[in-house]
Every structure is written in structure tokens, then in C-alpha cells.
Design a protein around this nucleic acid. Structure first.
Lengths: 198, 198
DNA sequence: AGCTTAAGCCAACAGCTGTTGACACGTCGA
DNA sequence: TCGACGTGTCAACAGCTGTTGGCTTAAGCT
């Protein structure tokens, strides 16, 4: 009982959401027009509004994202940096949503907030289990963000040649040590108790 | 002789270009409307077109950028990574143009191409003098791009809290080693002649 | 069957966009 | 003084945008 009837509209609702995600990922917020999204979903533009009330809310529905980070116990701490790079690559290439968020966040405040939330609410808790000094976790999560978002920007959005040509293993090999250091290295601005020289 | 007359229009032309740069930097390409730019420059929208023929050409004029990288002889090779991070920060905070390029490049192909050119034509030649294996220079320049663009994106566009709060010295201390490794470290995917284990 | 209601299409709105052409003001040189 | 020209304003265009309301069809229930 309380069986929710599976209406026919659920299919088109999902079709609209998926088409919206692809358009946002490919064109950004303003160029992803409702008419284009509707056309992709083989539906009338007015239906998009009927189902999602406004473009803003359609975006909110299309841009829900879960990093699906593994549990801290299932990754070897000594290889955490490399594992994280690989995981990000997987999530990026298997799901349009992150690309949609990145393309829209540059001009759309709600998308930027969503990206901030991804790193603060999903990545930071994992880092909290990987490193000991809790106060530094937000900074470390932010540093990881700079490198991983920069990779995605360069590779998937800007199409910087030498970066798009690197294969998965090469990226992990190059960026792995960077991420690992951001997670585990001592704060380089802390004055050492033994030596204060750089 | 052949003295170019300094016309009054030169001032307004420059005003339009500066206003355009600020708007592109703040709003991205599509939201930076000609009417808004004209309003900032206290001029009629039609004048913008008269002076620059089209929005596209206005953008091209407003987005000319020179990284102003120092000569390879004037930086200590052992500190090149840290020096580069500092230089990027200076260029980013002293000139709207890079931010305008970053904001527009996400949806505008010409801007993306311009960013690619900055790293390929301005950064790569410097790296060519800093490291020995020439074949790897484009890859290394691209890697530097991923980290520096990611920093700018996180700090100036997305406003990731912990990153915006870092001061200049902290950023240099954290990212310096990363950039330095991208410039100088041996290709991590090369099999070592002595050991092939990771 | 017939009635209800969901699902979809069509046409239109008000607003904004880049761009254009016609007209007015002012400042020069002859 | 007159004309030419550089500089600027006004009004309007065609096209696109998100959004709305009314109409038509199809499905589901009794």
C-alpha cells in the first residue's frame, strides 16, 4: 500500500532533467535555453516550466550531485592522493553533472555555492579521517579543490592540448603527489620548532 | 611628421575598452551586455558598435593579455616554482584581464583559445629555458596551467572560503612545491632504468 | 459507454539582446 | 561665414529569452 503510482510523466520529467544536464554541461547556464532543452527532450518548451516551475529550479534539480567518495577505511592512506585523483577522474567522465556545475558556476551564483558545498560537505569529512589536525581540514579540502577543478577546467572545458592528451595513468602519476601533499604534508607556513629558515 | 593626431575619441575608446574588461570579468560574456558596458562608460550603446564594430571584436580588444613573465636569467632556478606562483598572483590581482578571460572562456570559444595561447606561447618558452627535455615542455606548461587556473577559479570566481582566506605567502608556500615539481621533476610515467616498480 | 483528469501542443506576452540608420551638436579649416 | 567632419544621441529593427493561459488529445476509472 501507499504504492506511488508510476505515472507516465515520470519518464518525461527524467528526460527533461537529463537533457537539461547535458545542455548545462555543454553550454553553461544562459546559453542552455529552455527551448533547446525541450527540443532535446522532444517536448514542448512550456512543459519544462510545467514540470519544474522555472529555469532556476530546473537547474537545481539537474545539478544535484554526489561525489560518491569511498569510505576512509577502504583506501590505503599511503596512496590516498593517487586514489583521490583516480576517483575524481571517474566521477568526471561518468557523469555530466560535475561538468554542468563547473560550466554554470562561473556565471551562476547558485552553481558556485553548490560546488563549494561539494568540497566542504563531501570531501572535507573524508579528509578529516585521513589527517589528524582538524583545524586544517577546510584548507586542505580547498587546496585539493584548486588542483582538481583546475584539471577539469583545463581538460574538459578549455581543452588545453597537452592536458587532454594525457591518459588516466599519467594524470594520476603527475597529480597524485600534489593531492597527497595537500592532504598529508605539514602546513608549510607553520614555523618549525627546530628551524625557522625556509 | 606622420604624427598621429591624438583625437578626443581615443579617450572614449579606451573608456569603452576598460568598462568592457570589467564587465566581462565580473559577468562573463553573455551577461556583459553592450548596454551595460556603454552605461559604465557613460556613452550610448550605439557608440560601442561604432568604435568596435561588434561585441565579438570588442571582446577581442578587451581581452588582449600579456603575462609579463620575467626572463629566465632573472629568477633563481631553485626557486622557480615559488616565483611563478607569486608572479601569477600579482598578474591576477593587478589586472582584470585574466579574470575576464577565465570567466568568458567557459562559454566562449575565442576566449578559451586565448587562454590556451597564453600558456602555450608565453609560459612554455620560459619553461623551455628552465628544464632540459624540450619534448616535455608543453605537458609541463599544461600542468602548471591546471594548478594556476584552478587556484584562480577557486579563489576569484567560486570564492571557496578557505582559499580566499589564505594570504599571499601561504598560497606561495602551499603551491610553490607543486609548480616546482611540474617544472623540474622527472616524468613520473617514465620507467626508471634501474627499477620499474612504483 | 461516458466522465474525469492528466499530458501535451500552440500562440502569445513582455522584456531583453546586438545592431543599424537617421538626425543633432560642436569644432575645426578655408 | 560657410561647409565638412568628427562625436554623440535617439529611436527602432528583428530575433531571442523565460513564462503564461487556453486548447486538444489521450488515458484511466466506473
Amino acid at each position: 500500500m501507499a504504492e506511488t503510482h508510476r505515472r507516465r510523466s515520470d519518464a518525461t520529467r527524467a528526460a527533461i532533467r537529463d537533457a537539461a544536464r547535458e545542455r548545462f554541461a555543454a553550454d553553461g547556464y544562459e546559453r542552455a535555453t529552455i527551448r533547446a532543452i525541450a527540443s532535446d527532450a522532444r517536448i514542448d518548451p512550456s512543459m519544462v516550466i510545467r514540470y519544474f516551475n522555472s529555469k532556476e529550479k530546473l537547474f537545481a534539480a539537474a545539478a544535484e550531485f554526489d561525489l560518491q567518495l569511498p569510505d576512509s577505511r577502504s583506501i590505503a592512506h599511503a596512496e590516498a592522493g593517487w586514489a583521490l585523483v583516480g576517483h575524481f577522474l571517474d566521477r568526471w567522465e561518468g557523469d555530466d553533472t560535475l561538468l554542468a556545475l563547473l560550466r554554470t558556476a562561473v556565471t551562476h551564483a547558485a552553481a558556485a555555492e553548490r560546488i563549494r558545498a561539494v568540497f566542504a560537505d563531501q570531501l572535507a569529512p573524508l579528509l578529516a579521517e585521513l589527517c589528524d589536525d582538524r583545524a586544517q581540514v577546510p584548507t586542505r579540502a580547498g587546496l585539493v579543490a584548486t588542483q582538481m577543478l583546475g584539471l577539469a577546467l583545463s581538460r574538459y572545458v578549455l581543452g588545453i592540448g597537452p592536458i587532454t592528451e594525457l591518459d588516466r595513468d599519467a594524470i594520476i602519476a603527475w597529480l597524485g603527489p600534489t593531492i597527497h601533499r595537500y592532504i598529508t604534508a605539514r602546513n608549510p607556513t607553520d614555523a618549525s620548532p627546530l628551524t625557522t629558515s625556509p
